[in-house]
Computed example of a mutant assay.
Amino acid sequence: MKIRFLLDENLPPKLKSALLRLNPKIDIMRVGEENMPTLGTLDPEILIYLEMSKRLLITDNRKSMPSHLNDHWSSGRHTWGLFWLRPNLPLSKAAEELNLIWEVSEAEEWIDKIGWIPF
């Protein structure tokens, strides 16, 4: 199964556009879009949504997400992966990295794993 991404609400919508310009086949949505978690949804609820929808989260939230992620895993739950974007990363570079990850890996490879963009 190919990776399906969800952009956290704090990331610029232009990241989605940049990635789709590189590869329009990629399934990428953003918090706040139709049929996605609404803006302001709490991290624990986002993690449950991601698990149920089989989506990998892309975020730069390093303040609250790590503890919520640990709580999620401690309760026996799972994720379909999470990527943290490094500070000051140009959108074009983030889009290139995400496109590469999408092209060379499958969703199941990222279950309960976290990574950094760029690696």
Rank of each mutant, 00 (worst) to 15 (best):
R77L: 11
H72A: 07
G76V: 09
K63C: 05
L82Y: 07
S92N: 15
L57K: 02
L22C: 01
T59E: 03
R62M: 06
L39Y: 12
L19M: 15
E103R: 13
N88R: 14
E45D: 14
P90R: 09
M1S: 12
P13T: 10
W84E: 11
I58F: 02
L47V: 07
N88D: 11
H68G: 04
R86P: 05
L56E: 01
P12S: 14
G76L: 05
K54H: 11
R86F: 02
K63P: 02
A95K: 09
D8F: 00
R77F: 05
P37R: 07
L42W: 02
E51R: 09
M52H: 11
L50R: 01
P87I: 10
G81L: 09
H78V: 01
D27Q: 10
H78L: 05
R30E: 07
L82R: 02
N99T: 09
H72Q: 06
T79K: 03
E33Y: 01
V104G: 00
T41N: 07
L85S: 04
V104I: 15
L91E: 15
F5I: 11
I48E: 15
N70I: 15
S74V: 02
K2Y: 03
L42H: 13
I3H: 03
D60K: 11
P66E: 04
L56F: 05
A18Y: 12
K93W: 04
H68K: 07
E45A: 14
D71T: 13
L19T: 07
S64Q: 12
W102H: 15
A95C: 10
S53G: 03
D60I: 01
H68M: 03
L22V: 01
S67I: 13
G81P: 07
L85N: 05
E45M: 04
L69I: 04
W84K: 01
L89Y: 07
R77A: 08
M36H: 06
H68I: 00
P66N: 03
G40C: 01
P90S: 08
S17G: 04
D60T: 07
L42R: 13
A18M: 08
S17P: 00
A95G: 07
W80H: 14
L39Q: 08
H68V: 00
H78W: 08
K25L: 11
R86C: 04
P24I: 04
E51Q: 14
V104D: 06
L85K: 10
R62Y: 08
L7Q: 07
S74H: 10
G76F: 03
V104C: 05
P44T: 06
L82M: 15
E33W: 15
M65G: 00
L6D: 06
S17A: 14
H68Q: 11
L57F: 08
P44H: 01
M52P: 00
L6K: 11
M52R: 15
P12I: 08
L56Q: 07
F5G: 02
M1V: 09
P24H: 09
E103H: 08
N99K: 12
L47E: 05
I101E: 02
L56P: 02
L7I: 04
